[in-house]
């Protein structure tokens, strides 16, 4: 019954307007980047072309106007994260429907099924549009192209140093296409964990206005960006979550995701134990 409950909740979340809006916004980013890239590189020789996997919207330099669109994506990302699954969870608690669900499977099972559904729904919504872009780029651009958007040639001594700083650099060296897919899945996983962190607050706290539930993840992500202005650029979340980022990384950051997930699990357990008073 637990997994059935998770499946029902995932299906319900995916049909909600929040999921559809988020998916469409992310798809819009993808499509505008793709269309602009097609227009920019139309007719170019394959020798001067940028590698198709470096034209992705998640790459800071992935396109002609990508700096602007990339910055919009980074700004709205913390606001989009809770929309597909966390806000419906919050509304379920506000309306009291959570009590009817808890009456069917128990408070603890309901809380954990909700956490799992938040993880899966967010992962799907934040991964699929970008996987679509990988497919579109593979179809539309020459797979033999090797260029880099920063203009660094593959025989340039700076190139291996840059590549070595990528997360999963070994995978990139083996196959840039597999690297792109894995990085996209990693981006989806990180998004899911950030959303789960937000969901932890829904389990434990009750706010009158649903907008306040965006504050935990918004404050956390912006704090990492603000800190990077002071701490030599190694803390901003997008240096770790996005592909093709050659900035120096702090290995301690790998603990952040498991810690956030642990907080989500502990808060959910606490919330699940509480009385369903409404």
């Amino acid at each position: 019954m637990f997994f059935r409950s998770v499946a029902v909740q995932i299906r319900s979340c995916l049909k909600q307007s929040g999921s559809i809006i988020t998916f469409l916004i992310l798809l819009a980013f993808v499509l505008q980047n793709f269309i602009l890239n097609v227009q920019t590189y139309q007719g170019d020789d394959v020798l001067s072309m940028v590698h198709p996997m470096k034209l992705l919207v998640l790459n800071e330099f992935g396109g002609y106007l990508n700096i602007e669109m990339f910055s919009v994506l980074l700004q709205v990302y913390p606001l989009l994260l809770p929309l597909p699954a966390v806000i419906p969870y919050a509304k379920e608690r506000q309306t009291g429907e959570s009590i009817l669900l808890a009456a069917r499977i128990g408070g603890m099972r309901y809380a954990f099924s909700r956490l799992l559904s938040v993880l899966v729904t967010t992962f799907i919504i934040f991964t699929v549009p970008f996987l679509i872009e990988i497919g579109l780029n593979c179809i539309s651009f020459p797979l033999e192209a090797q260029g880099d958007p920063l203009g660094i040639g593959i025989y340039d001594p700076k190139y291996p140093e840059m590549v070595r700083r990528y997360l999963f650099s070994g995978l990139y060296i083996r196959s840039p296409y597999l690297y792109a897919v894995v990085e996209t899945l990693f981006w989806g996983l990180c998004s899911a964990i950030f959303a789960a962190f937000s969901a932890a607050f829904v389990a434990v706290f009750r706010f009158k206005f649903t907008v306040f539930y965006l504050l935990p993840v918004y404050l956390f992500l912006n704090a990492t960006t603000l800190l990077s202005a002071k701490v030599a650029g190694t803390t901003a979340w997008y240096y770790y979550v996005l592909p093709y980022n050659e900035r120096l990384k702090n290995p301690a950051y790998l603990w952040v995701l498991p810690i956030l997930l642990l907080i989500a699990v502990l808060a959910t357990a606490r919330g699940g134990r509480r009385d369903c008073i409404g």
Partner: peptide
């Protein structure tokens, strides 16, 4: 069960 304070999904 029905309780006074429970509701359903508005949309």
């Amino acid at each position: 069960i029905t309780l006074e304070t429970t509701g359903l999904f508005p949309s």
